[in-house]
């Protein structure tokens, strides 16, 4: 009974996290970059939105500006990687660290800024879950529609090919570095947009918001794709699957909380879920695939010493 009661909230919040996971999908799945900027840029979105709302900026404008702020963070990571040659994982970590200071600056040195739902016309708030589901649903639908259109344009196709095969892309005249910067910008813009919606929904922005967001995003992606790839492996179905993955994640999350587990311990659960999804293909390959022709020691074909003893 209590679970059913919590369901609408879980769906609303799941939609928002699903949106964030779409941002992660763009960097991780399309660009093939594990981008850790996300943990910072989701918080940036929340901070920017909360502060702008406090200054009387309309809610719709504040989420657009949050998008722009997140996009800028993504561009910084992209430039660290492409222009300065820093490995992408490290570039993301560096930006994430920078964002902690930036976010604190945005919040004016405070660790929490509350949003007054009565003073602002919010797009969504936890006091009205059906309304929040509707608003979040509409925004998610718009984002998916725009991404669908974009990724089938001339530019969008090359963004896909950049992640799929950078050698082929360069040979076909695609500026791979530019595309990585552009893609990371779009990805983190969407993540920050989700952060802004989350701040409105919860009625506050906290400097610690978004810690572990990348893991939640990956969990949503794996859950979603495990279903959507079986239905129809195309772009839109995948994105819808990712949203679904976010919702499923939050329903499970709420269920586990109701069982009495503290939220702080849930991070362990999320990490285990993601680790399992990442490990399964490897384990299948390594332990459960049909035995291959045994190769003599030392002559292993290009796969010899990658470090698992």
């Amino acid at each position: 009974m209590a679970f059913l009661y919590a369901l609408p909230g879980a769906v609303a919040e799941g939609l928002i996290w699903g949106l964030m996971a779409i941002g992660v999908y763009i960097s991780y799945k399309i660009l093939d970059i594990a981008d850790l900027t996300v943990d910072g840029s989701i918080c940036t979105g929340a901070c920017v939105c909360a502060v702008l709302l406090g200054a009387g900026v309309p809610a719709w404008l504040s989420i657009l500006i949050a998008f722009a702020a997140g996009a800028l963070a993504g561009v910084v990571t992209g430039l660290l990687h492409t222009a300065l040659g820093i490995p992408s994982i490290l570039a993301g970590i560096l930006t994430q660290l920078m964002l902690y200071s930036v976010n604190l600056l945005i919040l004016g040195g405070k660790s929490l800024v509350a949003i007054d739902p009565r003073a602002n016309q919010l797009l969504l708030h936890m006091s009205n879950n059906p309304g929040a589901i509707l608003s979040a649903g509409i925004i998610v639908a718009v984002v998916i529609a725009v991404l669908y259109l974009f990724f089938y344009t001339e530019v969008g196709l090359t963004l896909k090919s950049t992640g799929d095969n950078p050698d082929m892309s360069r040979a076909q005249g695609v500026n791979v570095k530019f595309n990585q910067v552009l893609g990371l910008g779009i990805a983190n813009g969407i993540v920050a947009l989700a952060g802004a919606l989350l701040a409105q929904y919860k009625g506050s922005a906290n400097i610690n918001d978004g810690r572990g967001a990348i893991v939640i995003g990956l969990a949503a992606i794996f859950i979603g794709l495990s279903v959507s790839m079986k239905i129809k492996p195309n772009f839109v179905v995948s994105l819808i699957g990712v949203i679904g993955g976010g919702i499923v994640y939050y329903i499970v999350y709420n269920f586990v909380i109701l069982l009495g587990l503290k939220t702080d311990y849930l991070k362990m659960l999320s990490a285990i879920i993601v680790a399992l999804f990442l490990a399964v293909p490897y384990l299948q390959e390594e332990y459960f695939s049909k035995p291959k022709v045994p190769h003599p020691h030392g002559a292993a074909s290009g796969k010899g010493d990658d470090g698992h003893a």
Binding site: Y152, L157, K160, M168, S169
Partner: peptide, 29 residues
């Protein structure tokens, strides 16, 4: 190395057909 495996045959061809041209925000194929 020469093709994008996760993309359709037409999409690969369409990307190649625009080699050396300015790519725009118009329909890719």
């Amino acid at each position: 190395k020469g093709t994008a495996p996760d993309m359709e045959i037409v999409e690969n061809l369409a990307i190649a057909a625009r080699r050396g041209k300015k790519r725009k925000l118009v329909w890719g194929v």
